[in-house]
Design a protein around this nucleic acid. Sequence first.
DNA 1: CCATAGTGTTGATCAAATTGCAACACGCCG
DNA 2: CGGCGTGTTGCAATTTGATCAACACTATGG
Lengths: 303, 303
Amino acid sequence: MRHLKTLQCIADVAASGSIRQSAARLGITPSALTRKIQDFESELGTPIFERMPQGMRLNAAGELVLRHIHAQLADFERLRSQLADLSGVRRGHVTIAASQAFAHGLIPQEIATYRAQHPLVSFSVLVRDHIHAVSAVAGFEADVALVIAPPPAPEFQPLLILHQPLCALMSKDHPLAAAATIRLRECLQYPIAMPGPTLAIRHLLQAALVRLGLPVHTVVESDSFEVLRSYASGENIISFQIRAGVPQVSGNLVAREIDQRDLPPTQLVLGQLRGRSLSVAASKFVDQISSSLHSRYGDGRTG
Amino acid sequence: MRHLKTLQCIADVAASGSIRQSAARLGITPSALTRKIQDFESELGTPIFERMPQGMRLNAAGELVLRHIHAQLADFERLRSQLADLSGVRRGHVTIAASQAFAHGLIPQEIATYRAQHPLVSFSVLVRDHIHAVSAVAGFEADVALVIAPPPAPEFQPLLILHQPLCALMSKDHPLAAAATIRLRECLQYPIAMPGPTLAIRHLLQAALVRLGLPVHTVVESDSFEVLRSYASGENIISFQIRAGVPQVSGNLVAREIDQRDLPPTQLVLGQLRGRSLSVAASKFVDQISSSLHSRYGDGRTG
DNA sequence: CCATAGTGTTGATCAAATTGCAACACGCCG
DNA sequence: CGGCGTGTTGCAATTTGATCAACACTATGG
């Protein structure tokens, strides 16, 4: 788009920190690029980059400008999506940042459902921990984020909040698989495949385990739910996962909820950047995933 | 601003409905303007104007585009305001749409207070009834609106809501001026200067009067509070005004609250367009007027 | 029913802004 | 020092944009 070209150039230079590098990526010469930036700065009346021997870096004014540019580009994307919807076909691109817990089951399934109706909409999925998922939303890298226990941040606006119990994952022959819900202390009688410290549920577990004061027999610790799952399905080992993160088709794997006296329900939040209006495609995807989660899990809150 | 020029052209043509007219106002030739629009439309892949013998009119897609353009321009204005604030001086322009009730006392006084601290900020005041004030905000004509009993509209986001009693206006020698609060039926013993049907408080009064079922001795009806005030201060006539609309220095005019059993408190709402972020200048003005109203009147709600 | 005045559009011409190329100035590092 | 990295500038080629005049069309009034 013609009138956004300069803005995109600035955003690219801000990201790469180098005029020559951005020039190559944008398919123009460094001189044209440097002039674009100079013209923009002179129109604005303020420099927005610090020129350093190592390259370009945004100054304070530039940070404001970059936020504005990202907002402009996002809003234009939303316009395109609206126009496409007007003519009957929904097209566009949706970027969702999600906790790893949902990367296998929930997200791909929701995307598949959505794309069955609107095949012209494409998706990007960023797997990030709760902190970085929220930053991705704040930095216009992602349209929405689906995370467990997000840090409170004023710019992150929740669109849906569910309270979910934690589940113990085990093979379906496991002695504990008979009960509907189990106590955390029962789990500790068996070897544990422990989520790594970058996973949000690790902190929740940690707190509960300390409260219990019992020894934990950790046989493996991993940042990958895939690894944890494979252990839990193979041996007599127990692992953990939030309920919405449990795959619906799970082979010989079963999930049993942990009694809420041991582990209070955890917030599962779908949210966006406050004050931003989403594209039609993203907005409708949010609607779908909201109603899907809501009908499947209701509001798991009990206390 | 270079990259916004085309957008401004489109907005102007949409407003004027004529290429030649806009061309003259923008200082370019009609041919250049028609080409700008054609280029934009071809980049977008959709026409945004209907070409009629009488001129240009936005089509459905154009309406979306225009909204986007207004949002872009407003957001750029906000950026400029932020940049100015960064360098220590606050500058910018604030447009406020207000009910006529506040056009004399409250608004000019608040603007004067603000401009005493920030003389580089300029103001526009649009006097509109509650319906049109909300539309002005929705159509990006005004940054904020201060209105009585605004119609419920999803795009209008309240920032401050006060519940205000209606007051009877009379000269300070008036027989009723002795009491602190008065009953509506007492007022009807005297001639009334009645607010015109375009004023929001007319509807409130009307409902209460019908409920009372007493004859009303209307000597004059006017859409101008200035006219009503002059009658109320001159003869034994009574007029009405919401409390925050009563001028603080009022000559020989006094205001007495109507008993809330007769007339429930009215909503006084300061609001903006939902999802829009205001310029620093406008945002700080909202802060000032909010705290000023809040400290002066608290929340007048009682029931 | 034609003349008129209004609309937007188009082709050719020309000026102005943008770009590319090559050279330059500066800082860094071995 | 010499090589490599950065951003910047002068000048020429190119592209973009604006102008002017003519055109096609429609509504309106005599």
